[in-house]
């Protein structure tokens, strides 16, 4: 599903590569933790998958497509197959839960009837049933992140990228978030989650890819966060 082949990324303003000769294969339906300290290249990895950045060297394949050959105007279609969740939720403060989730479908031109049917299903899937008309500032951090996950998942993407989704949330609530992500993973969606949260990684026992200074130093199925941290 995601295939990196000897990928190196050097940002124009920096000498040290953000990613150096990285080769990673993520299969369909996998759940992968991307771990490593800040600046180890986790975010760059995610940006390359979204084609927000182009690799300096090497090839990136996502959902069967060679991103180097994907013309710019087709990038939106690639992104429709990828859901994204961030540490800071990125909800629209002037829209309620339903509208925030529906926004993702509205802007890709889905018909209203379809939106009315699908959005409540996803809101229920992330455990927010009965809260569809709440505004984001009336929700807890964990609930806001659930809304963000619902929005990322409502278009049934093949891949869900999560960049430290539990970074702003207390450990108890994080467990709930992880359950939602696990539930999404069980529907066949590939999940890649960048995180610092050792407790979560250790408890989930999923594949762990560790990056350090832009290189893959560990790729372990059913791994843990690692002793160094």
């Amino acid at each position: 599903m995601i295939h990196f082949e000897n990928v190196t990324k050097v940002y124009p303003t920096q000498k040290r590569p953000a990613l150096e000769d990285v080769t990673i294969d993520v299969d369909k339906g996998e759940f992968v933790f991307l771990v490593g300290p800040s600046g180890s290249g986790k975010s760059t990895f995610l940006r390359l998958v979204l084609k927000e950045e182009k690799p300096t060297r090497g090839r990136v394949h996502v959902a069967g497509k060679d991103l180097a050959r994907l013309s710019n105007w087709k990038v939106p279609h690639l992104r429709r197959r990828i859901g994204c969740v961030f540490q800071d939720f990125r909800l629209l403060p002037n829209k309620n839960v339903f509208e925030n989730v529906a926004f993702a479908l509205e802007v890709i031109g889905k018909p209203r009837r379809f939106i009315r049917k699908v959005v409540p299903e996803v809101v229920e899937l992330v455990g927010l049933e009965g809260k569809a008309d709440r505004m984001p500032d009336e929700l807890s951090g964990g609930e806001q992140q659930r809304v963000a996950i619902a929005r990322a998942f409502v278009n049934r993407p093949q891949i869900l990228l999560a960049d430290e989704p539990t970074g702003n949330i207390d450990p108890a609530t994080s467990i709930g978030i992880m359950k939602v992500l696990d539930r999404i993973n069980r529907t066949g969606t590939t999940v890649v989650m960048a995180t610092h949260d050792a407790a979560i990684v250790d408890s989930m026992r999923k594949r762990v890819i560790e990056l350090e200074e832009g290189e893959v130093v560990r790729d372990q199925s059913r791994g843990v966060y690692g002793q160094a941290y």
Partner: peptide, 15 residues
């Protein structure tokens, strides 16, 4: 904020 989200969820440039 809106346009950032639109971009992420794959709204076309034109849209």
């Amino acid at each position: 904020k809106e346009t950032g989200i639109m971009r992420l969820v794959g709204a076309s440039n034109f849209y």
